[in-house]
Write a protein that binds this DNA or RNA. Structure first.
Lengths: 204, 204
DNA sequence: GTCTATATTTCGATAGAC
DNA sequence: GTCTATCGAAATATAGAC
């Protein structure tokens, strides 16, 4: 909350406009490849002015991280404490897919700046926060699930992630609805418990 | 080719040892988060010595990039000029999967340093090289293929990529053979031409 | 081939005026 | 809230001795 702003109804705070520009640049050139001057310039200010709104460059990155963190918090709440199965995983992915399509840039930010996030994460003693990414990887490593099921779970996520983020704009010609339906179909194929046709597969 | 080395049979050249250390650090901390001093120190030399073997820090990154580029060149050759179908895509992925498991670090390097690669790639006027990544994305964007097929192709790649690179060490307990078999199964499920309804599956 | 300097640049961050 | 000016640190890269 930067001070005693007078415009109650201004469309977006300066703080938010800084974050929007930073998000674009961090996705495009990377966190380390972006200088504060490059963030300030399109906003018509100098880099010194940024320090009125953020105490450091890393604070800008962490503020953007919070946007993802909030999605994860909500998502974890919808899962509740149901045991993880191929079916519940499908429901989770369905929710996640919508979030990813709506907040594309935030996910791209994290995909393209893993090293920077890890560095800042360690510096700041911010351990002990129930992170969605942590839960995700912990679940995939849960040895009480079969390797078969876990590969399917990771793979189903990978289908969505790759189509949306690693394929460039390969699917920009498809409508969002068409893409979402195709992704659902692919995810369902992966998570469907194989019917025992001909041979019995045992994946307890 | 650094000069007139006297040890013909030395296990690895200094140049290669520099690249090996740099690869580890670039994967762990990122290209921008790694200084030349951090590369030189574990090798028992000073950063100035690195300039005898490489003309710049970016040259080290590009030398590592060449390792991936060579894989891609070989891979593209195996594809030949066959038209891309779900079946040929499966064969390609099978080859690619083996390469990925054998050369894990090189792929991790590219996954975690996309911004740095793009920056260096643009600076160096190295356009005009038949890049595997370029071919990959171009193929996925080929509008002569149906969206359905292209989503399946991107997704099948995503299954492999995610299990091997985005899941941390979630599958480190599984044997490489077990993991490879499971990935093949998942890929086949995605690329199998859907039978009309309960009809015959044709994967010749 | 590797070293000890050092040049040069850029960046994050601060001080203080307005 | 934003500016000008500057500090201090760290990085890439070079020069020249050995």
């Amino acid at each position: 909350m930067p001070g005693t702003g007078s415009d109650q109804a201004e469309a977006s705070s300066t703080r938010d406009r800084i974050l929007d520009v930073a998000l674009d640049l961090f996705v495009e050139r990377g966190f380390d490849g972006t200088s504060l001057r490059q963030i300030a310039e399109p906003l018509g200010m100098t880099k010194a002015a940024l320090y009125y709104h953020f105490e450091s460059k890393e604070a800008i990155l962490m503020a953007l991280h919070m946007r993802l963190h909030e999605f994860g918090r909500v998502l974890l709440a919808t899962v509740g404490d149901e045991p993880v199965t191929l079916e519940t995983w499908g429901k989770l992915l369905s929710e996640l897919m919508d979030q990813m399509m709506a907040q594309r840039k935030i996910f791209l930010l994290h995909e393209r700046n893993q090293a920077a996030f890890e560095r800042v994460h360690n510096k700041s003693h911010q351990q002990e926060h129930e992170d969605f990414e942590t839960w995700f990887r912990t679940t995939l490593a849960d040895s009480s699930l079969s390797v078969h099921d876990r590969v399917r779970m990771a793979g189903a996520f990978g289908v969505v992630f790759t189509a949306l983020f690693l394929s460039g704009d390969a699917f920009s010609s498809a409508t969002p609805d068409e893409l979402r339906d195709e992704l659902h179909g692919a995810v369902d194929d992966l998570l469907r418990n194989e019917p025992a046709t001909g041979a019995t597969l045992d994946h307890s």
